[in-house]
Simulated scan of single mutants.
Amino acid sequence: MLASLEPRAADAGLTPALNKSFPGFAFTVATIGDPYWRDPHAVVAADGTRRGDHRAWVERELAELGGDLAAFRIRHRQDGEKFAEWRGTSAFAFTPTGPGVADFIQLSLGREIEVLAGPVVDPDYRPTTPTISSSRPGFLAIPLPRRSRSPDLSTGCVAAPAAASFT
């Protein structure tokens, strides 16, 4: 039933589709206007070819270079490789099933798209010494420059496995 909805009109079409698919129920849909994103999950070459899972690809590339982060940066700063991540929004569909306050069905729906979020390596920025990321345990946070005037670099990083040796 969900696959039959046109993506651009899914919000408007969801209520009628649910009501048609489940006769006897009167669904209501509420969308959430707070988009979310998930961790980088893939590396994509400049020509669109998938290079693989983000973490596995970084680990493999670093292993080939003996864990040398500077060599990794040099190798990948001009090649046009980007990392992809999932971005999405949520919608909730619900319908009463009886007279009580707890008599209802609620469905939580996530609608995600894959986006090319940025370069694997920013060619205009040389990273500082990596530090263990507090927001992503097991990963090193390599600060990247933000495109704003703010000097705070804490929101931009490339995730690299903490198990790699950086010398």
Rank of each mutant, 00 (worst) to 15 (best):
R146V: 15
S133A: 07
T95W: 00
D122V: 03
D68E: 07
W86P: 06
P130L: 07
R146Q: 15
P137F: 10
W86G: 08
L107K: 10
G138A: 11
G67F: 12
S148L: 13
V101Q: 11
L144E: 11
G88C: 01
L62A: 02
A70L: 08
D103M: 06
G138D: 07
D103V: 08
A71Y: 01
L62D: 03
R126E: 11
R149N: 13
A71R: 02
A71S: 03
D124E: 15
D152P: 09
A63E: 03
P99M: 10
L153P: 09
R111H: 09
L116H: 00
S133T: 04
S133P: 03
E64A: 15
P130V: 10
V120M: 02
L153Y: 02
E85S: 15
G88N: 09
L140M: 13
E61L: 01
G138R: 07
G156T: 09
A71T: 06
R146G: 15
G88R: 04
P130D: 12
I132F: 07
C157V: 00
R73M: 00
T129C: 11
G138C: 08
S135W: 05
A91K: 07
W86D: 14
G67W: 06
L144C: 06
P145Q: 12
R111Q: 11
L116N: 03
E64N: 15
L62P: 02
K82F: 08
R87V: 08
S134V: 10
R111E: 05
A70N: 09
E81Q: 04
